[in-house]
Simulated assay, not measured.
Amino acid sequence: MSASFASALDAARAAAAAQHHPQAALYMVATPIGNLADITLRALHVLQLADTVACEDTRHTQSMLRAYGIDKGAAQLLALHRHNEAEAAQDVVQRLQQGQRVAYVSDAGTPGVSDPGARLVAAVQAAGLRAMPLPGASSITTALSVAGAVAWRGAPDGFVFAGFLPAKSAERARVIGQLAHEPRCVVLLEAPHRIGELAQDLAALGARPVTLARELTKQFEEVTTRPAQALREWIDASPQRARGEFVLLLHPVPVAGDGGESLRVLRLLLQALPLRNAVRLAAEITGAPRNALYAQALEWQRAGI
């Protein structure tokens, strides 16, 4: 154990030991995405308390637990990853039925989002058992907090989590073409061996700002915002920039601050023209972004308005 975490374990017991942590429950525990100090006191307490720690990689998790001074034997660690999640989930259910507390951790961050865990929770709930969330680190919210990509200056509210795009080039380009019409902020994830290809494909979005965050919370953390068409050039400028795990945020497409005039024009044109023609003309007449108008027209169409 690192001496710096000895007091953290004491603080965890003091802060969380008096709280109710029922048996026969699955605890979905968020763990750091890089910096070991980004662990919650409640997570430390539950990881000590757990009878079993299910995890993506037992070696990785054992190393993390030892860094915190938490000792779990090999029999207390259960491998549960994307290749065996359905089968291992039944093992977890059996342990819960025996009255165990089971904690699940992914390799980093909040499980069940882009990492395994969703099928596990579904199996546990189907068996009439309880799943309890322990919030904490997430690369998604970490990147959003420093990107300045949330709704402002008339941009649409909220964000869309698209995760990892298809590995095949043609399919990836097709999905990016669809995302081009999404006016809200879009969150993407990518691995180092494909970041160059993704950046090249995102160039089709032209000047749309994209925030790229790599190695979040680690020593070589880097966050930059550039036009989509300039991302590949920035990555290729240094070999270091293609290393690590990536979060990319496609910034929202602002709607012109025209008091709703662009939407009024669009509605009138849709009464007489096909959707694409109406969007094109409305953009030319009002100066509003075509992508934002197209997305709004599709939303009206889906809603039957």
Rank of each mutant, 00 (worst) to 15 (best):
V102W: 07
G109L: 07
E299T: 08
Q97L: 14
L129H: 07
V146W: 04
L248E: 04
L281Y: 02
Q219N: 01
A167D: 15
P192V: 12
A292R: 09
R264L: 13
R208Q: 12
D115Q: 01
R42D: 14
L77G: 13
T58L: 04
N277I: 00
R194Q: 11
L231W: 03
P289L: 03
R172D: 00
T286V: 06
V113M: 12
P111M: 12
A43T: 07
V102N: 13
D57M: 01
D71V: 09
G158L: 13
R276G: 09
G73N: 14
V279Y: 02
V175G: 00
G260L: 11
E171I: 00
G148C: 09
P254A: 15
A230F: 06
Q23E: 06
P239M: 08
L248S: 09
T225C: 13
F5K: 01
Q219S: 11
A278W: 09
L129I: 12
W152D: 15
A207C: 04
S262E: 10
R241V: 08
L268F: 09
I70S: 11
R172F: 00
T211K: 01
I305S: 07
A237K: 08
G163A: 11
F161G: 04
G117C: 03
A37F: 02
P252G: 13
Q229E: 15
A24G: 13
A89Q: 05
L263M: 10
Y104Q: 01
L179T: 07
E222Q: 12
E190M: 04
A79I: 05
R276M: 10
A88E: 03
G117M: 04
G112S: 07
D107H: 06
R174A: 15
N291H: 11
P289Q: 08
G69L: 14
W152P: 00
A207V: 08
T110F: 00
P252F: 04
L231N: 05
I305F: 03
I285N: 02
V124T: 12
L41E: 07
G136I: 03
H83D: 14
I285G: 01
Q240W: 05
A204H: 05
D91K: 11
G206Q: 03
I235T: 08
L165I: 10
I176W: 00
L26Y: 04
S238R: 15
S262K: 04
Y27P: 00
R13S: 05
E245F: 04
N291A: 14
E284T: 09
V105E: 05
A16V: 03
V53Q: 00
C55I: 09
R267T: 09
F159P: 00
Q200C: 02
I39M: 12
H45A: 15
A15T: 06
A126Y: 01
L205C: 12
V265N: 03
I285K: 02
T224D: 08
R243E: 12
E190H: 04
S139R: 06
A207I: 07
L216R: 10
W300D: 08
T61I: 10
P32F: 14
G163K: 02
I39F: 05
L205I: 05
P252Q: 11
A137K: 05
R184Q: 13
